[in-house]
């Protein structure tokens, strides 16, 4: 029974990893830009959710606002800073976004202090329900349901809308997008904000589960990389499968070998890399 419980936990966790990784992946796909500040946006989303709840904003409001604020900040950063360095070597992308991540992390510590804090689940979802023979926290079920809906919407946005088509065309060639008559600068900003917003949302959703602390960003960044390495960059399905895989492995290991739970996901990554260097669904 405990395994079923952990499997459920793993799915919830995996869906959050998916949100993180798909944001990273979409940004990379269009901009060929690896965003080391992605974890910092996750961190910021979590803390904004925490703060908004403290100010008495309802949970739904906090969730949506946190994501929107993170996306807005990301849009400002993209227009003011990142746009200037796209043409440079990726070393400078990494330097600049590491710098950005450090700044966000330090600002979080200045505003909210260096010590972490727990975040209450919304009142309506604090209970637990019986699932067959075991009790399961409602909030975690909500996360699974909510992220599943979100994943479906994302799928539709990326595969079924004009924006998605433009993003996919853009990842092949930016000239193509310009030819189609779109302003590539605005598309870049929108996509960067979307990716960052997804990271922020993942952070906000994770806050009631794991609490908030200033160093959760680095951890999330590394996990997002693992998911992308396993799933294959630029693949929506890859991110979904790898996210779930990583979440489930991590959760099951918490029961089997608690000390090695985090270690297990990195070992899983090495195994995948050995067998399939491009990841499960990576493109050539």
């Amino acid at each position: 029974m405990i395994y079923l419980f952990q499997l459920m936990n793993g799915i919830g966790l995996g869906m959050l990893y998916f949100l993180l990784a798909v944001g990273l992946s979409v940004i990379f796909g269009l901009l060929h830009f690896v965003n080391f500040a992605h974890g910092a946006f996750y961190l910021l989303g979590a803390y904004l959710c925490y703060a908004l709840l403290q100010y008495g904003v309802g949970f739904w409001g906090a969730l949506v606002l946190a994501a929107i604020i993170v996306a807005a900040i990301a849009a400002v950063v993209e227009t003011g800073l990142l746009k200037r360095i796209y043409r440079l070597d990726h070393m400078y992308h990494i330097v600049a976004t590491i710098g950005l991540a450090l700044m966000i992390q330090e600002i979080v510590i200045i505003v909210w202090g260096p010590v972490g804090s727990s975040v209450p689940a919304p009142k309506a979802l604090t209970g637990a329900i019986m699932l067959g023979h075991f009790i399961y926290p409602e909030y975690r079920l909500f996360v699974i349901g909510f992220t599943a809906v979100l994943a479906a919407i994302l799928w539709w946005v990326l595969e079924g809308t004009r924006l998605g088509a433009v993003v996919r065309a853009g990842s092949e060639s930016t000239d193509m997008v310009s030819l189609l008559g779109y302003d590539i600068n605005r598309i870049n900003t929108a996509v960067f904000a979307l990716g960052a917003g997804l990271a922020g949302l993942a952070g906000a959703l994770a806050a009631p589960i794991r609490g908030v602390d200033p160093f959760m960003g680095v951890e999330a960044l590394a996990v997002a990389f693992v998911v992308v390495v396993i799933g294959g960059m630029g693949s929506y399905t890859g991110a979904l499968i790898a996210g779930l895989l990583v979440g489930i492995v991590q959760s099951l290991m918490t029961t089997l070998w608690p000390a090695g739970a985090s270690l297990a996901i990195y070992i899983a990554m090495v195994l995948v890399v050995l067998v399939m260097p491009r990841g499960l669904l990576g493109r050539a």
Binding site: I85, A96, G99, L100
Partner: peptide, 9 residues
């Protein structure tokens, strides 16, 4: 962090 951004720019 700010220095790194200045460096990249």
């Amino acid at each position: 962090g700010a220095l790194l951004i200045v460096l990249a720019l």
